[in-house]
Design a protein around this nucleic acid. Structure first.
Lengths: 162, 162
DNA sequence: TATTTAAATAGGAACTATTCTTATTTAAGG
DNA sequence: CCTTAAATAAGAATAGTTCCTATTTAAATA
């Protein structure tokens, strides 16, 4: 995992400060580990994994536990301070439908529902994106809370770290 | 996992037949397990997991191995006969960028790159999709082969089941 | 500034999804 | 029918993630 800087040092420190305030506002204690974890996210390009973060911080906090990284990232996610990319579910899921279609994913129960949006095919993506590589598939992902989970209320949460 | 029918029996059998032909065309042997696995995908609504497929077929093939389901689904995926939903990578990845942005994912190296598409915000999704639940996030996902992997050629593949 | 205490952490065990290994079975061509 | 390379079953091994518990610490309060 590259550690190239996304932003310069003072920008990062500013965001860490701002983050620190956000934690207090959310009744989250401001610990060294939490700040380092957030800083690591900012310093790493390309959506780091838990392990990337863990190894990066280990040089600073030699007895950081990997469980702390898991707990903390999930905590940040649950408070909307960061987002989780791609792997909403921890289980692979498969689709025999090769037609052009899109997905709504429930962030609570991880259900994936299809929808169709024929007009979307006509919208052309920006040049910036075209240059990233050979594109094989272009689809829309919606995230939210499905009707079923809305009915059930908060208690339907999956039970991970707080 | 629900087993409600997506299509009626004869539609499914027709697709299984067609699939069988496709296998031969791809130099894949047509085994009972493979046909049952594909049939299970067709019969299950909502993008089944490996375990969903496994349990469904166990009643028909009592000593099916779960490894066969893993191998077979990955094989189908590699031949473009089905797609894998959501979890391209097997590791959670996180993003501190809460701005509205989109992702290009390399199907070979699993790298995720950001791009921006301000106009996309203005496109309104179809009613069909609005009715699925409370939508919190709307983004575009591109899949393809990144420039780096294209340079490296086929050998850059991740080494899973053939 | 010192004290208190609920919350956070470290460390390691446990769990779960996925992949690997090897002996056995089988599809499909001869 | 035979043959053989490919596919499978069974279970071991691995890797990512979560759980458990004793210890530490942030931050509220005296």
């Amino acid at each position: 995992m590259k550690r190239a800087k996304k932003q310069n040092r003072s920008d990062i420190e500013e965001r860490v400060q701002e983050f620190s305030r956000l934690c207090r506002k959310n009744d989250l204690r401001v610990t060294n580990q939490r700040l380092e974890i957030f800083r690591a996210l900012l310093e790493t390009v390309g959506h780091p994994t838990v392990e990337d973060v863990f190894h990066q911080i280990r040089t600073i906090l030699p007895n950081l536990s990997i469980d702390t990284v898991y707990r903390t990232l999930t905590l940040f996610e649950n408070h909307g301070l960061i987002t989780r990319v791609q792997c909403l579910s921890d289980k692979g899921r498969f689709d025999p439908n090769l037609e052009n279609h899109h997905h709504f994913i429930c962030v609570r129960c991880k259900k994936i529902e299809d929808f169709y949006w024929p007009e979307f095919t006509d919208y052309s993506i920006p040049d910036e994106a075209m240059k990233l590589g050979m594109i094989q598939m272009k689809k829309v992902e919606l995230r939210g809370i499905c009707n079923e989970c809305r009915r059930k209320g908060r208690n339907a949460h999956q039970k991970k770290h707080s």
